[in-house]
Design a protein around this nucleic acid. Structure first.
Lengths: 223, 223
DNA sequence: ACCTGAACACCGTTCAAGT
DNA sequence: ACCTGAACACCGTTCAAGT
């Protein structure tokens, strides 16, 4: 029996073929991101998932950078939720930054992208607005709050970006640990002496240490 | 006259054909980096410059990541020079960090790379050793010096990485400035109120501000 | 051991031609 | 206006075959 039209067959095999819209494209991209990582979120791969050719996407998306920016902002929604939770401004600030960092840890390749493409979507603006409010509540000057939010977000993004290619563990890079452990005490006296401290601590305690360094420094700035 | 062997002709046309060694490959890569940017530093492009095929490079270089790490360390040599200059520890620390940041500003794509591939070459170790010495001289605890060096270098690297794709100017991203200027005061009250501060300052003054925030924070950490 | 041609399995983007 | 096939100009890496 050859009564099936190609369209009917396609409908049965892909019952939920997403619409070819900007939102549909971002949705398809998010699915591929979750399943296969950012390196597979390519124009050609998305087009294949949407059952079309790569050229079709350019009606809705300017280029790959534009697409990646859309993806990040779509994921950024829940990050500000801890800001309305319990605790003082400092605890809530820490919680928002941890949520942001944890999101990027889940998609470390997005963190690298966020460094090269300045985010400016609605969810990102909400995140900036929330952190500004928290720093001002904590007593920061307007300038310290404005510049400080930048530094705090950059630090969190960079830490996540660092873990993009590497090990999934929370420990220090084993390659670096080896190099530090074998550093020549003549050439690198401080590295040799402080080898233990240099590789001490897990990601969580170092992150917490860094956030406290930054918050104290920001609040201490004179107007 | 067809007395020229291909080898003789090639010798005349490319009198300084670099040797096919690890160092020769890195040299060729550095030339392409300076002239055409990191995106053109590809296995195929380097192979062409060395008058061979891409497969030949794999005798000396494990993969692209390995090659990029070699390139960065080769550039890192002069960065520590300000450490032996005049001034107190804080001035010299600032000068080393500025030299490191300026190098990466010149090759911002290398900064992005340094985030995904932890550097561990001899010049990088010298840089770490130097900064450790300076922080200890400034009175930091062993732990604060060790963890602090990491944060200082990460911050400088991230700032440089941010400027990779974007504008070459020292000002804020014009796209972001526009978005902030038009932010809805109902949805984003803090962003609207602090729009001026958010986009104030050039890269240099923000960097200096950030380094001071970090140095003060690092020195203030309890043991 | 070192070097290479050719192939494999991909990319982003453009554009003329269709609907 | 939207969509597409086909092409252009590339990638990294592998591998069998040569020297």
């Amino acid at each position: 029996m050859a009564t099936d039209s190609p369209a009917a067959r396609s409908r049965r095999e892909r019952p939920a073929k997403p619409a070819l819209t900007r939102a549909g494209i971002v949705d398809a991209a998010l699915t591929i991101l979750r399943d296969e990582g950012l390196s597979k979120v390519t124009m050609r791969r998305i087009a294949a998932a949407l059952d079309t050719g790569p050229a079709s996407l350019y009606v809705y998306v300017r280029n790959t950078e534009d697409l990646h920016a859309q993806i990040l902002d779509a994921l950024l929604g829940p990050v500000v939720e801890p800001a309305t939770g319990p605790g003082g401004w400092r605890d809530r600030t820490r919680a928002v930054l941890v949520a942001y960092r944890d999101l990027l840890f889940g998609y470390p390749e997005l963190a690298r992208m966020a460094l090269s493409t300045q985010p400016s979507g609605p969810h990102y603006l909400t995140l900036v607005d929330t952190l500004l409010g928290l720093l001002v509540e904590g007593g920061a000057s307007d300038r310290a709050a404005a510049w400080g939010v930048d530094v705090l977000l950059l630090q969190a993004t960079a830490i996540a970006a660092e873990h993009a290619g590497r090990h999934t563990s929370d420990e220090a890079d084993p390659d670096l640990v080896r190099v530090i452990a074998h550093a020549d005490p003549q050439r690198y006296p401080q590295v040799a002496r402080l080898a233990g401290e240099l590789t001490s601590g897990d990601g969580t305690s170092r992150s917490a240490w860094t956030v406290d360094v930054l918050l104290d420094g920001i609040l201490a700035r004179p107007e």
